[in-house]
Simulated scan of single mutants.
Amino acid sequence: MPDTPTTAYKVLTGAQMAALERDGSFAGAPVDLADGYVHLSTAAQLAGTVDKHFAGQDDLHVAAVDLAALGDAVRWEPSRGGALFPHLYAALPLDAVIAYGPLERLDDGGVRLPVAG
Rank of each mutant, 00 (worst) to 15 (best):
G82Q: 09
L84M: 14
A73V: 09
L84N: 12
T7W: 05
P102S: 11
L92S: 02
L103Y: 00
V50W: 04
R22P: 08
K10I: 01
A8W: 04
V31D: 09
V111G: 02
R112I: 00
A91H: 09
A27P: 07
V31C: 07
A69L: 08
P78V: 01
D32F: 12
Y100C: 03
L88P: 00
F26D: 08
D32L: 04
G71A: 06
G82H: 06
L88Y: 02
K10Q: 08
H61M: 06
L67V: 12
A64V: 01
E104I: 10
A83F: 11
V74N: 11
Y9Q: 02
D23T: 12
A8D: 02
K10E: 01
H39F: 06
H53V: 00
M17F: 14
M17E: 12
A99N: 11
R22A: 10
L33I: 11
L113I: 04
V38N: 00
G82C: 03
A55L: 12
A83E: 14
L94N: 10
Y89C: 09
H39P: 05
P102T: 12
Q57H: 09
Y9F: 13
G82D: 07
T6Q: 13
V115K: 15
V11F: 02
P102D: 07
W76N: 05
P86E: 10
T4C: 14
V97S: 03
P2Q: 14
F85E: 11
M17K: 06
P5V: 07
G36E: 01
V11L: 07
A43T: 03
Y100M: 15
V11S: 02
A69V: 08
A116Q: 14
E77G: 09
A91G: 14
M1L: 13
V11G: 02
A47F: 01
D51F: 03
A43D: 11
L106R: 15
G24H: 07
S79T: 08
Y37S: 04
T42C: 06
L70T: 09
D59Q: 08
D72L: 15
P30V: 03
E21S: 15
L67K: 03
G24S: 04
A27S: 09
P102Q: 15
D32M: 01
V31W: 13
W76P: 00
T6Y: 13
D3E: 13
Q57S: 14
Q57Y: 08
D23F: 01
A29I: 07
T13S: 15
